[in-house]
């Protein structure tokens, strides 16, 4: 009996040792969140539970250009209506105030001419590191489908644009964005993936590198992405030491996983609009293990099957 318990302990320890890379990765990734927790507990912040630091709120992303936005016609003919930006002298201040507690998380496919969407209270971007190849296009589509499934389009909510916290999927042309928005999620995603806005995405990643420390830059370089990035305050995009709210979707393989991630993102940015996180969006250990198994399951089992 004693021998059985000893051997059982060895088995469990061996399992833990095998899974330790996942554990270590998860802890490394979110170590900065833990630091922020301590800061928050010591007096900062107003009610956040993990990984948040105070200082500003959602505000407009970028400070140049973007004086209009296309709202696609319901007819789906590819034409859109131009909406003027809010009539305010200082959009950042107005956006930050309106975004504190009333904002809704929304989504939009946006072309280069629609960037940055300054009339929204704030925006984030889904940043891939490359366009899809035939071999990984399905993953891109799955992530897009999860994005569409979890977050309402900005036309679906009955709140003004300047109270919307929009998460942008960049596309290469404005007309593609209009067409993708006018179609249902699944068909819209085909267009949005095939015409992904890589230039906008790479610019966002470059700006993120300017603000992150060496470990986080390494994460951006080593992981395949995509990353969801937002700046605080947004006009600091590209500046050093800017606070960046970010979420790593590298482990996401299926549309269901993507939907869960974007649901969490949506809930978080809606609940914590007056707070900012300087760290990676929290992920759970179970997510890490599940995503890892989904990512490598086919390859490893196929390899074993060949032998």
């Amino acid at each position: 009996m004693r021998q059985f318990f000893i051997t059982a302990a060895i088995g469990v320890l061996t399992s833990v040792a095998f899974l330790s890379p996942c554990l270590a990765q998860s802890q490394d990734t979110y170590s900065r969140d833990d630091d922020e927790d301590e800061e928050e507990e010591s007096g900062g912040g107003g009610g956040g539970s993990s990984g948040y630091s105070t200082g500003g709120g959602w505000s407009t992303y970028g400070d140049t250009g973007g004086d209009y936005i296309f709202v696609p016609d319901s007819s789906g003919n590819g034409r859109g209506v131009v909406i003027s930006p809010p009539q305010t002298a200082d959009r950042d201040v107005a956006s930050a105030q309106s975004g504190a507690g009333e904002g809704r998380a929304t989504r939009i496919f946006a072309g280069p001419g629609m960037f940055p969407p300054e009339h929204f209270a704030a925006y984030a971007i889904v940043a891939f590191k490359s366009r899809p190849l035939p071999s990984d296009r399905d993953r891109f589509v799955s992530i897009c489908q999860g994005y569409v499934a979890a977050i309402l389009a900005y036309t679906e909510v009955e709140v003004p644009l300047d109270q919307q916290l929009v998460t942008v999927w960049p596309v290469s042309h404005d007309y593609v964005a209009v067409a993708a928005m006018s179609e249902s999620g699944l068909t819209g995603c085909d267009k949005a993936v095939d015409e992904y806005g890589l230039a906008t995405s790479l610019a966002a990643l470059e700006d993120a590198r300017a603000a992150l420390d060496a470990d986080d830059i390494e994460t951006l370089q080593d992981r395949r992405g995509p990353f969801v990035l937002a700046w605080s305050p947004t006009h600091q995009k590209g500046a050093q030491d800017a606070l960046i709210l970010r979420m790593d979707l590298s482990g996401v393989e299926t549309a269901i996983q993507a939907r869960e991630k974007f649901e969490a993102w949506r809930d978080e940015i809606e609940a914590k609009q007056d707070l900012w996180i300087d760290g990676w969006k929290e992920d759970t250990l179970s997510d890490t293990i599940g995503n890892w198994a989904d990512r490598w399951g086919n390859e490893i089992l196929s390899f074993l099957g060949k032998d």
Partner: peptide
């Protein structure tokens, strides 16, 4: 962990 795929 609830993987989504059978392979997982």
């Amino acid at each position: 962990a609830s993987p989504d795929t059978r392979a997982g």
